[in-house]
């Protein structure tokens, strides 16, 4: 199987504090890989290193074959990244945000136009092109943010808690969008702290205090640990670490 993301013994320390503590995993092309853990577990730190925007302390990682250490700029041309806070410009309109992201990813005016109508359609924002982004509700912001992150059609998409603070219906719709992307061949690396979202992922890693405490498909984890509830499994694993 072809690997899209590969990580070996990745470590990130802030001062002496290990935010990411020696993790290894890989993600296959077209797979939805869920990174699950509570706040402060090290999810965002991992994602930022993979996107080439944060230097790692040690370890190796590749994204689409490019080294996160030596080729971060090459990585940037093949990935899309949706950061934790739905990074959109609140003081720009929906359309201005889309144009901006198209522009900085080097899309031509025509390409941006085509993608813009696709994003508006996907996010259900048709007719709201000139609304101020800051005034949009959570679900719309989330989908617009996703649209902007994948405007250039990346091979790998990193989504950092894309469903946090969004109503359940929007969350469901969002996951359907993600599944659609993966079907079309895009690799998805997604973090969440909602256990119930495990069901939408092909495979998951549970992360706690910078360490991966369990990894596999939902079914694998359940049979291996003889539980039928992954939340219980996680709680038990964490207890074991205390």
């Amino acid at each position: 199987m072809q690997m899209s993301v590969q990580v070996n013994n990745l470590v990130k320390r802030f001062g002496s504090f290990p935010a990411v503590d020696d993790i290894s995993f890989s993600v296959a092309k077209g797979e939805i890989f869920g990174f699950i853990g509570p706040n402060g577990a090290g999810k965002s730190t991992t994602i930022r290193m993979l996107c080439g925007i944060l230097d790692q302390t040690s370890g190796v990682g590749t994204v689409e074959g490019f080294s996160i250490k030596t080729e971060p700029e090459k990585i940037k041309s093949v990935i899309g990244y949706m950061s934790q806070k739905f990074s959109l410009y609140d003081d720009l309109t929906v359309e201005e945000n889309i144009n901006f992201y198209g522009g900085i990813h080097g899309l031509s005016r025509d390409e941006t136009k085509t993608r813009r109508s696709w994003i508006l359609e996907m996010a259900g924002l048709r007719g709201k092109e000139s609304n101020m982004t800051g005034a949009l509700s959570g679900g719309w912001r989330q989908r617009l943010s996703l649209g902007c992150a994948i405007i250039h059609g990346p091979k790998v998409v990193f989504l950092d808690e894309p469903t946090a603070g969004v109503d359940p219906i929007s969350r469901r719709e969002f996951w359907l969008l993600i599944r659609g992307l993966a079907k079309a061949g895009t690799t998805i690396f997604v973090t969440t702290h909602y256990m119930d979202e495990v069901e939408f992922c092909d495979r998951i890693a549970m992360i706690y205090r910078g360490k991966i405490v369990a990894m596999g498909t939902s079914a694998e984890l359940k049979t291996a640990n003889k539980v039928d509830n992954l939340e219980m499994l996680f709680v038990n694993l964490i207890r074991g670490m205390e």
Binding site: R48, C51, I53, K76, S77, Y81, I104, G106
Partner: peptide, 8 residues
Amino acid sequence: EQIIVSPL
């Protein structure tokens, strides 16, 4: 972060 992660 979006600007840093872009190919700019």
